[in-house]
Amino acid sequence: MKFLLEVDLGETASDGDAAREVGRILRYWGGNLHHCTLEPGASQELYDSEYRAVGRWSVVESGGGS
């Protein structure tokens, strides 16, 4: 299985806050993953510091050779 994390940096990418926002997202969600069952089909939206949906993590079946 694969754990996928996708974040749309949107406006934060051009104003220099992209690294800070991604770092905050990784700390917050990384700290909460122990509450989640990591099995194919699991997923959850990711939010920025202004509580806007900016991405999602998900667990999918591995495609074989990867």
Rank of each mutant, 00 (worst) to 15 (best):
residue 57 W to Q: 07
residue 10 G to L: 08
residue 11 E to M: 06
residue 24 R to C: 06
residue 43 S to E: 15
residue 56 R to Q: 14
residue 56 R to E: 14
residue 1 M to K: 08
residue 10 G to S: 11
residue 47 Y to A: 08
residue 31 G to Q: 00
residue 2 K to M: 15
residue 59 V to E: 05
residue 32 N to L: 04
residue 2 K to P: 14
residue 33 L to Q: 00
residue 27 R to S: 09
residue 52 R to V: 06
residue 17 D to I: 00
residue 57 W to P: 02
residue 58 S to K: 11
residue 14 S to Y: 08
residue 25 I to P: 01
residue 10 G to R: 11
residue 12 T to L: 13
residue 52 R to D: 11
residue 48 D to P: 03
residue 61 E to G: 08
residue 60 V to Y: 00
residue 3 F to R: 07
residue 23 G to W: 06
residue 27 R to L: 10
residue 19 A to N: 06
residue 57 W to L: 02
residue 11 E to C: 00
residue 61 E to D: 15
residue 43 S to Q: 14
residue 57 W to Y: 10
residue 60 V to K: 13
residue 49 S to P: 09
residue 63 G to W: 01
residue 61 E to I: 07
residue 14 S to A: 13
residue 1 M to H: 13
residue 49 S to L: 11
residue 54 V to E: 12
residue 50 E to A: 09
residue 28 Y to Q: 09
residue 23 G to R: 02
residue 11 E to S: 13
residue 60 V to Q: 15
residue 9 L to A: 14
residue 28 Y to C: 04
residue 22 V to M: 02
residue 51 Y to N: 14
residue 12 T to G: 04
residue 9 L to N: 08
residue 24 R to D: 13
residue 55 G to D: 13
residue 23 G to S: 10
residue 52 R to I: 00
residue 14 S to C: 08
residue 30 G to R: 03
residue 15 D to Q: 06
residue 24 R to L: 10
residue 13 A to P: 04
residue 40 P to E: 03
residue 16 G to H: 04
residue 26 L to W: 01
residue 37 T to P: 03
residue 15 D to A: 01
residue 10 G to Y: 03
residue 62 S to H: 11
residue 50 E to I: 00
residue 20 R to S: 14
residue 18 A to L: 01
residue 48 D to V: 01
residue 46 L to P: 11
residue 47 Y to S: 01
residue 27 R to E: 12
residue 53 A to H: 10
residue 21 E to I: 05
residue 56 R to W: 06
residue 25 I to K: 02
residue 49 S to E: 14
residue 38 L to C: 00
residue 15 D to V: 07
residue 46 L to Y: 09
residue 45 E to G: 12
residue 6 E to P: 01
residue 53 A to L: 11
residue 7 V to N: 04
residue 26 L to A: 09
residue 44 Q to I: 00
residue 8 D to S: 10
residue 51 Y to M: 10
residue 10 G to A: 14
residue 36 C to K: 08
residue 30 G to Q: 03
